[in-house]
Amino acid sequence: MNPLLTINSLKKQYDEETVALNGVSFSVHEGEFVSIIGPSGAGKSTLLRCINRIIDATEGEILFDGLNVGNQNKGQLRKLRTKIGMIFQHYNLVNRLSVIENVLHGRLGYKNTFNGSLGLFTAQEKKQAFQIIEILGLEKQAYKRCDQLSGGQKQRVGIARALIQEPRMMLCDEPIASLDPNASKIIMDHLKNITTQMGITCLVNLHQVNVALKYSDRIIGIKHGLKVYDGPPKSITKNQIYDIYESEAGELILELKDQNEA
């Protein structure tokens, strides 16, 4: 089976001094739940944003579902982006609009300029939006303005907005970094369900190593714009994690199961 996403020696240089990515290569198969871990500033966010070309890569090649992301023209790129959902640490919702309006934004990629600008969505799309809202347990908040929601609820709206795109892959940029442990668990459980039940591939940037180890099928470690680890969570060792974060053994708050001691 061909991988859904293939990244070949991806490089991104912001200016002469700032190199965010320095030749990263990996591929992700359909239905995988992959976590990317690494210290702040390692290039994790840049990597995700290169995949749907919110940021243009300097060098390298990204293939999504057989299409070269770098070669798409404006219209093709819009179409391609509808197939990649994205959620963010700060949710990035339009706070003055209601939950349902924010969820429907996920359909904009499918609409022409006129209908999209005026927010003319079909009955089918609205029905779908309410279904997704219900799946995520937000039906009571559907008409509330987003600035009245808690962080966890906002993130679920973010997930709903991504899901209504009918994506094949989700890019999650530190989805639980601003949430309390309880809300974090709800969000991670939803993301895991999305992968196992809907078959949507998830690529998640995470700061919480424990969470990454618990939920992922695969871990990718990034340091200084380079891939330093790629493998299942079971085989990653404490020392490798310390190496990724460049810290002395024992300095990190980790609760690895004993099997990983090495």
Partner: peptide, 14 residues
């Protein structure tokens, strides 16, 4: 927010 809607495939006017 602009980034998020761009990621949804929305164009400039939308």
């Amino acid at each position: 927010v602009i980034e998020a809607l761009t990621a949804c495939g929305a164009n400039w006017w939308q």
